[in-house]
Design a protein around this nucleic acid. Structure first.
Lengths: 163, 163
DNA sequence: ACGTTTTCGACAACCACGTTGTCCATCCTA
DNA sequence: TAGGATGGACAACGTGGTTGTCGAAAACGT
């Protein structure tokens, strides 16, 4: 046992594993979310749609606002809104107070998928807490929030590959 | 101080933060890697190329093999190889032993970017170790490797959005 | 009150990255 | 040697992004 500790301390993991572990953790959570979401009646919600709906929120948003929140162009945000609309998760409505604006709002179906996502994430976190212990999980979260640049906890996950 | 601890323990972070933290950590590492890689003479290496070059490795691979390693179709792998070739990171050569196969091999420039990436990841991990303490970082890695499904530590990071 | 500037949404062209499907050449094997 | 499996190329398409342009509407400065 002392030997094991000794060995683990003597030999660190290679540096390239850290990003792989972080990504694999992220991906496994997202995959489980969407598997469960599909089981609960939302088979065609894609990760990008989830981020977008989160960014739209209860109060709705215009395409330009959505683009700013997601960190993409207003055109890209508009296309995403098109897809959400085609799937019945959002609707566009004219703003009576500003003839230029068209507000994107979530439908009840969109709200439902958002609420279910939140519940599923809670359940997944509980599974991690059960496996690792509540303190270790809190440490993990705290350590990550230390290393993550301030303000990087945004919703602009989609499309990061284009950097 | 005791109050702070009390408050932190009494109130867990919401479940949706966990994937966001994991992704933000991953992304910050990848972003820093590519910033530094650009500074060191590789400005047009994209994250997807790094994964692909890693998968090609010292010994080269065919498009079909590459596709299997990355978890994508052979056509997609072939397109990635096209881009690597256009940028001077890889070359294709006929296999004299099998007229069907065309082996993708890294050029010296490709090898160089791979070696630099490894060194940069090592440096980044050292920064995390300095900020969190070596034990906490090891705990973080260990905890993640516990939660990540066996075999999910693969190179198929690119294109996961299409699920 | 009237130009100027800004903002918004739409449209088009394009690129990166993935998918299926098809096709043919080549290799392996029964 | 006939048949099946494999490898690569090509085409069409979907998704998620980009820039650039445009006209209509709002906001602002004089």
């Amino acid at each position: 046992m002392a030997d094991d500790t000794q060995r683990a301390r003597a030999q660190d993991r290679p540096g390239y594993e850290l990003p792989l572990l972080l990504f694999a953790g992220f991906r496994s959570l997202i995959d489980q979310l969407h598997t469960e979401l599909a089981r609960q009646g939302h088979p065609d919600v894609r990760p990008a749609y989830g981020f977008a709906m989160q960014a739209i929120g209860r109060d709705g948003a215009t395409a330009s606002e959505l683009g700013r929140r997601l960190g993409v162009s207003k055109q890209a945000a508009g296309k995403t809104a098109d897809r959400l609309e085609a799937l019945g998760y959002a609707v566009r409505a004219d703003d009576p107070a500003d003839a230029r604006r068209k507000v994107i709002r979530l439908t009840p179906r969109g709200m439902d998928s958002l609420a279910r996502s939140a519940a599923i994430f809670e359940e997944l976190r509980a599974q991690w807490a059960a496996a690792l212990g509540p303190e270790r999980l809190r440490d993990l979260e705290d350590d990550l929030s230390v290393m993550v640049p301030r303000g990087a906890l945004r919703l602009d996950a989609a499309g990061w590959f284009g950097a």
